[in-house]
Structure formats: structure tokens, C-alpha cells
Design a protein around this nucleic acid. Structure first.
Lengths: 342, 342
DNA sequence: GAGGATTTGGGTAACGGTATCCATGTTTCT
DNA sequence: AGAAACATGGATACCGTTACCCAAATCCTC
């Protein structure tokens, strides 16, 4: 039973209870060399009897904290939940624990979040779609093992995990063109990032959209709404696109969240999906699969990405210095929100 | 510039750079008594010049970590994002940082997550909709300042923040009855909790549903699907309810996430909302506001709850021992998913 | 101007672990 | 049997802060 304000059990308590030295207990905890099976048994019993748990901050002063920091821009995108699930599933078989921190919408807040992680001596950092410049990411990576998700630049200081956004965007635009669409518009995202634009996934998707359009002789039909990859962003972007004349017959939103908003705008304009306007997204979030939404989208396996990120990070924690890139190949999931051009 | 593997700047580095004692630096950092303005200035300059940042684990060994742990069951529910936003907004004006950890779907995983927080010496813990028994919560609360969200029991060891789920559920059921519905069904959540059932919000919503039905002489029409408060849960629950004969004309899902799934089931059954079946949810998440979903729901202000939780927790960290309950009053947001009974 | 109070700065023992080094006892090998 | 190698357990410096002390200097007060 825990009594109020009782001092936490320490390694010294375990040692005296087991009648052994502190060193011995430490060795058992760390699974270090130099303890006999009998000693191990004895110490383990004492640990169990006292309910001892090592204090991570104390361990952190000399060794590891067994903590990895996960920076997410926010937690509204269900796609991030997939990443987190993959990561936690992977970490379950290890001694490490993941802690999330919200990066927010600006570089400043994000930077503070990452600093907070480093101040707390995490053993490694995973950043999802960070806004920071490559230089800043490398600065972080020089101090702590780092894995960056959803950014495309190559760095020799950190590992990268991302999907092939070019392939994904191509799938969508080709799909729409194959359905006979010509006036295909795109909703992209504006960021506060200091990254090279071409390293950010939304810019890659947008650039690919333009490229494929051009390749099909549709350069004149290119229409891009610079908005945001969230619901309101998609809504406003789509409103703007639909107000153009002639209006697009298809909208490729750079993310499902935005596509959900776009659907709202289409609906509000009194238009039907996909009869009047086809809508496609990216990420294949659960929501899109709901039959009354039935959003055509690009699937990138978030769980696989999360798992890979965890694995790469722990490899780095264990000492790997070379940089690794892990790329997942996306696939198109066609649903009812896209159909033949009118 | 940071060179690879460079040792982090410590308080001793600052002290020698400023030609003062370690104590003096520590005092300045902590804003403690006993430093002249000149000394303060001098030390602050040294801190800036060296880019010094206190190492939280070291501070944690003696005092605070300025870290608060936020346990969320998962990050799929957008309602949790509202809570987080309220909390982070509040913490912005303080020295504290919030870290999230995923509690998961079972008591065992949740307990491990909370242990992980305590092992890391967080200054306080906020638990959102925990599964643990009241006894376990109090055990945690005896060790660390604790605030529990979305649970209804009174404890003298921790503060509680929740909405008046009874009032909220009543609003929904009364609304449906006023629309002329009689065969109103409910989708509830099954949990792995060891709490007293009547302290869990989904059970309160379910019990209130039954009570109001009875009060209106609709005891015979009570129909409850024991499922889960997520999309698939709502989908399966609704399927089951719709297969009954006669089928309900209205479904009150205990959470928006479940309502989204219920809408899918209704749609799949070839029925129209709200003409054939009205659907209502709880939480008033962003998604429900999308016009093509237009979900009637109960609004409980998540941001306010998050802010309150942060404030109460810091008060506890500062020493308050008495327990506080913070209750928000929900309101009904009527949208297109509910209409007159057929 | 003596004595006490106050201000200012610093020395240093914790905090709870880790990991290096060392001492002792036990095998193994020739 | 003696030496070398190995296995086992322990003493202890150290990690980077905090906060409790104390000492010296300055300021009042009568």
C-alpha cells in the first residue's frame, strides 16, 4: 500500500532488503555481466517484494532514459494515429516508451517542443512532418538520434521515412484523367516551413499534379488553391475553386482532411459527388472509408511507417551512424467520390 | 554551432564563463532570492552566450521537472484534440510542458503508461477517461498531483473535470422524443474498466437514456446495443439495431465517433437520414459539423475542459490538497441528422 | 560607533542511479 | 602444484542540478 507522500523505493532499499550491494542490484536491472543466477533471483525477488521501479531521471544522468520523443504537428489527423499505433506496437517488445509532443503550426512552437524533448534527455527523436529547416533538423540529429517522417530531403545525419508522394499524386491525377476529367483542380497546403519547398510532401504532390496535367496536354487547366490540409482549409479551397468559371469537374485535395472539407463545399454549392464534381484525397484515413463519404484516396501505410521509424531510431540509439531512407509505395483506393466526367 | 557529440553546456560552464559560482547561476535560473540585479544580468548574458538550457533530468533529481503527463486513451477522437489544445494554450503562459502518452484499450497497457509517467518524475498527471479503478487512481494521486477527466466519482485525492453527461444525454433523448420518436435506440460502449460502472460517462449516458425513456412511458421501446465508441463500433451497433423488427426510428449514439459509424450502417441499409432514421451523437466534433454529415450532437467544450485541467493540476503542484470538481454544462446542437419521426 | 539585521555570494551535500575499477574466490591448464 | 584465466560481488566517483548552509559586506538603529 502506498501511503501519502511516502518516499519512493530506491535501488538502495532493494539492496539492503536483499542484503547485497547497490552494484549488484544495478547489474541485475541493466542485465549486465557479472551476476550469478542465484544473485539475479535474489535481487529480482527483492525488487518484486518492494515494488521497485527505477527512476528514469536518475538513470538519465548517466545512461539512457528509455524514452523516445515523438513530435506530431497536431493530433487531429487520423493518419498520425496510424503512425503512432505502428510505433507503439513496435516499441512494445522493447524497453522504450514513446512520448508525444505537439509541434503546432509554427516553427517557433515546434522548435520549443523539440527543445523540450532534448532537455528531457530522450534517447531519440522522431519528427513527423516538421517545419524546421534541414539545417535545424541536422542540428538536432547531431545531438540525438533522429528519424524524420514525411520529408524528402536526404541527410547523412538522420534517417528518413516517407511515402513516394510523387507516385501517389500521379496515381490520383492519372485516375481522374482516365475517367475523362480535364478540369482537374488541386488543393494544396501553405506552410510556415523553412525547408526547401521541394522537400515537403504537399509541394511534391502539387508539383506532380502540375507535371502530370502538363504531360497530358492539360497545362491550361491547371488550377491550384493554396489553402491548408485541414477541413476548413479544404472547404475554403474548394469554395474558391468551385467559384471559378468554368468550374472544375474534379478536385484532388492533397490530404483527406482537406478532401472532407472539399466535399462540404461541393455539397453546399448544391452539386453532387461524383456526378457534378469528383473529389479525391490522400492518406486513406478511416473516415474516407465510411460509405456515405466513400472517398477515393491514396493509401500509404501509416502503421508500417511508424514501425519503421521506431526500428530505425533504435538502431541509431544502438550506435548506427549511417543514414537510412525508408520509402513506402502508395496505392490508389478508388471509391465512390470519383466518377466519369460529366 | 553544435559539433557532433559535443557535451551539452552545463550550469558549471555558465558559472565559469560568467566568473561566478554555480550557486549563483542556479539562483538566477530558479528566480530564487539572493542575487543582485547586476549578478542576474551577468548570469543571463552568460546563459545566452553559451545557449545554456537546464537539463531537466538533473533538475528532476532534486526538484521539479516542469513536465506534466497527459494520458489519452488514444488520439483518434478529435474531441481529445480539443482538450489538448485547451491544455497547451493554458500551459503556454507557464514553465510547464505537456507530454502525451497513449493509454490504449486495456487496463494493463494504461497502467504501464501511467507508470512510465511516474517513473519519469512528471510533476503532475492528467488522465483522460482512464479505465483504472478508483483505488488505482487514488494510489497514483497519492504519489503525484493528479487530475482526472471524464470520470464522475468524487475523490478527495484528485481533481475531476467532466461534463454533466446526464444533462447531455437528457437533451438528446428529449429532443428525439419531441420530434415524435418512440423507438429510440442507443449505442453504448463496453469497456475494460474497473471503475464503478456508474462513474463512467458512457454508462451515465446509457442509464440516462433508459431513465428518460421510462419517464416518457417508453420503457418497452428501450433498445441498447452494447458496442464501442468508435466508428466500427457504431457501425456494428447500428447494424444490429436496424436488424431488429420493428426497427428504431432514431439512434442515439453515445459518441460522435460511433454516430459516424451508425450513419454508415443506416446508409448501407438503404435508409435515409433523417427521413427513415434519425441519428444523434455526443461530443460535437468538427466532423459532425460538415454539412453532408450534419450530425445532431451534444457540445461539451473540450478546450475549456483542457484548460481547467491544466489550471487545477498546477494548483495542486503548487500545494493545494483539497479536491476540486469542475463540471461543464453541455448544450444540444441540432443539425440535419435528426428530424420528425416518420 | 557598536550591535544587529539584511543583503549578497558561494561551498557543498544530497538526489538515485550507472559504470569503472578492484578484490576475492574458483576453475582450468600445464 | 602453481599460474593464469575467469566468475562474482562490491566500493565509489560521477552525472547536473537544487537548496541548505555559512561568511562577508553593507546598512540601519539607537
Amino acid at each position: 500500500m502506498v501511503t501519502p507522500g511516502r518516499r519512493r523505493v530506491t535501488i538502495a532499499d532493494v539492496a539492503s532488503h536483499a542484503q547485497v550491494s547497490v552494484t549488484a542490484v544495478s547489474k541485475v536491472i541493466r542485465n549486465a555481466y557479472g551476476v550469478s543466477p542465484a544473485m539475479r533471483e535474489r535481487v529480482k525477488n527483492a525488487i518484486d517484494e518492494l515494488g521497485y521501479r527505477p527512476q528514469v531521471v536518475a538513470r538519465g544522468m548517466r545512461g539512457r532514459t528509455f524514452t523516445i520523443g515523438l513530435m506530431l504537428p497536431h493530433i487531429r489527423n487520423p493518419f498520425f494515429a496510424d503512425i503512432l499505433d505502428g510505433l507503439t506496437e513496435y516499441l512494445q517488445s522493447t524497453d522504450y516508451q514513446a512520448f508525444m509532443i505537439q509541434g503546432g503550426a509554427t516553427r517557433k512552437v515546434e522548435s520549443r517542443a523539440v527543445d523540450a524533448l532534448m532537455d528531457r534527455q530522450v534517447d531519440g527523436i522522431i519528427m513527423v512532418a516538421p517545419l524546421a529547416s534541414k539545417a535545424r533538423l541536422e542540428e538536432v540529429a547531431k545531438e540525438k538520434p533522429t528519424v524524420v517522417l514525411a520529408r524528402h530531403e536526404r541527410s547523412s545525419y538522420y534517417d528518413s521515412v516517407h511515402d513516394d508522394d510523387e507516385a501517389g499524386a500521379e496515381l490520383v491525377v492519372n485516375h481522374l484523367i482516365a475517367l475523362g476529367h480535364r478540369r482537374i483542380a488541386h488543393i494544396t497546403h501553405q506552410d510556415d516551413s523553412h525547408a526547401r519547398p521541394s522537400d515537403l510532401l504537399h509541394n511534391i504532390r502539387a508539383a506532380t499534379y502540375e507535371r502530370v496535367m502538363r504531360e497530358h496536354g492539360l497545362a491550361d487547366e491547371i488550377a491550384v488553391a493554396k489553402s491548408f490540409h485541414h477541413e476548413r482549409g479544404g472547404y475554403e479551397g474548394a469554395r474558391e475553386l468551385l467559384s471559378r468559371s468554368p468550374r472544375p469537374t474534379a478536385i484532388f485535395a492533397g490530404a483527406d482532411q482537406a478532401a472532407l472539407g472539399a466535399l462540404a463545399a461541393v455539397h453546399e454549392a448544391g452539386l453532387a459527388v461524383p456526378v457534378d464534381v469528383s473529389v479525391a484525397g490522400y492518406d486513406n484515413t478511416h473516415l474516407g472509408a465510411l460509405p456515405y463519404i466513400a472517398l477515393t484516396s491514396v493509401d500509404q501505410d501509416g502503421a508500417v511507417m511508424g514501425r519503421a521509424a521506431g526500428q530505425l531510431l533504435l538502431e541509431r540509439v544502438e550506435g548506427r551512424m549511417s543514414a537510412v531512407r525508408f520509402t513506402v509505395t502508395p496505392s490508389l483506393v478508388v471509391r465512390g467520390s470519383t466518377g466519369e466526367a460529366a
